[in-house]
Amino acid sequence: MFTDFIFAKLVLKSGEKLTLAVGLYNMIVNNFARPEFTMFTAGSVLVAIPITTLFIVLQRYIVEGLTTGADKG
């Protein structure tokens, strides 16, 4: 969510406590002369890999839970 980004950007000022989204954003903004879009993309992919893996592993349980509550009758 974008509000999570805005809140973290406004509240967190310390470099070691920044969220990943704010850190990736700062990487692009701070290098305005030559932004590192390849590093930004690589960071985004590295963030997406564990989330996607977790979804694939737990997908059957999500579908099973959704269909369990659907009672026809």
Rank of each mutant, 00 (worst) to 15 (best):
N31H: 14
L46S: 15
M27K: 15
L46V: 07
T53N: 01
R60M: 06
I6P: 00
A8S: 12
G15K: 15
F37V: 02
Q59N: 10
M27Y: 03
V11F: 07
V57R: 08
L54R: 05
A8I: 00
P35D: 00
A70C: 04
T67P: 00
K9G: 02
K13S: 02
L20M: 11
L66Q: 14
T53K: 05
G23E: 07
L54I: 04
V63E: 09
K13D: 01
G73S: 15
I49L: 14
N30K: 13
Q59E: 09
T38N: 10
T38L: 07
I28Q: 06
F7Y: 09
A42Y: 15
I6N: 07
T19L: 07
I6Y: 05
A48H: 10
A33C: 01
V47K: 14
K72V: 00
I62V: 10
V11E: 00
L54S: 06
D71N: 13
G15P: 01
E64G: 08
Y25E: 01
V29W: 12
L54Y: 06
M1H: 12
K9Q: 12
K17Q: 10
E16A: 12
A70P: 00
I56C: 05
V63W: 12
P50D: 10
T67N: 11
I28N: 05
T52E: 05
K13Y: 02
F2A: 10
R60S: 12
F40L: 05
V22C: 07
T19V: 09
S14C: 02
V29K: 15
G43M: 08
K9L: 08
T3I: 14
F37R: 07
F7R: 11
V22N: 03
E36Y: 02
A21L: 05
T38M: 06
A42C: 09
K9V: 01
F7A: 04
Y61P: 00
V45I: 14
Y25W: 11
L12M: 05
G73V: 06
N31M: 07
F5S: 01
M39E: 04
L12G: 00
V29M: 10
F7I: 05
I49N: 08
L66N: 09
K9F: 06
V45W: 10
N26R: 13
Y25Q: 01
L46C: 12
L20V: 08
V47C: 08
T53S: 05
G43V: 04
I28R: 02
G65W: 15
L18N: 11
T19H: 11
L66M: 13
F40K: 05
F40V: 04
M1L: 12
F2Y: 14
A48C: 07
I56E: 04
V29Y: 08
A42P: 03
F37K: 07
A48D: 10
A21M: 11
P35Q: 03
L10C: 03
M1Q: 05
S14Q: 12
L24G: 01
T41P: 00
